[in-house]
């Protein structure tokens, strides 16, 4: 995918999420949190090298093939970021960012489930989902 398009997409998602968590309805706030965490997941995936490579699924056919250098730990030649050095062929995309995103998705699933149930219980106690009406504790 085009890099610029991806950045604009992430930025838009962040904007939408920020707008939604400033709403007064609790459910909209939860939706905003979800959108924000998806924007973050996209951001994490975009930090790894991903152009042109295959998904990092290693089958037995790949056992002998070169592993595809994504990141060489060579401080002396100034290579730091997970970029592809000149002249190496990239076989697999960076698997680490995908693992990070999977973890982040699982965590945001748990948080979202918790938040939705919390909203339901608050609705039962207060009879409304408007944040400004349930405000009893004063900062």
């Amino acid at each position: 995918m085009n890099n610029t398009l991806l950045s604009v997409c992430i930025a838009l998602l962040f904007a939408i999420g920020t707008f939604m968590i400033l709403r007064r309805d609790m459910i909209k706030v939860v939706i905003g949190i979800t959108v924000l965490s998806h924007a973050t997941n996209l951001l994490i995936v975009s930090t790894g090298a991903f152009l042109g490579g295959r998904a990092p699924i290693i089958t037995s056919d790949d056992a002998g093939s070169p592993s595809g250098i994504i990141f060489t730990d060579d401080l002396a030649s100034g290579i730091l970021a997970p970029v592809i050095p000149e002249g190496t062929e990239m076989v697999f995309v960076d698997p680490l960012v995908q693992a990070l995103t999977l973890t982040a998705i699982v965590i945001s699933l748990a948080i979202t489930a918790f938040l939705l149930i919390l909203c339901y219980r608050i609705y039962q106690e207060h009879g409304t989902t408007d944040v400004s009406e349930i405000r009893r504790l004063k900062g």
Binding site: L115, L118, R121, I122, E125, R136
Partner: peptide
């Protein structure tokens, strides 16, 4: 009711 509101804020 207050506890739930506090948790919502916190979370």
């Amino acid at each position: 009711a207050d506890k739930l509101e506090a948790i919502f804020k916190y979370l």
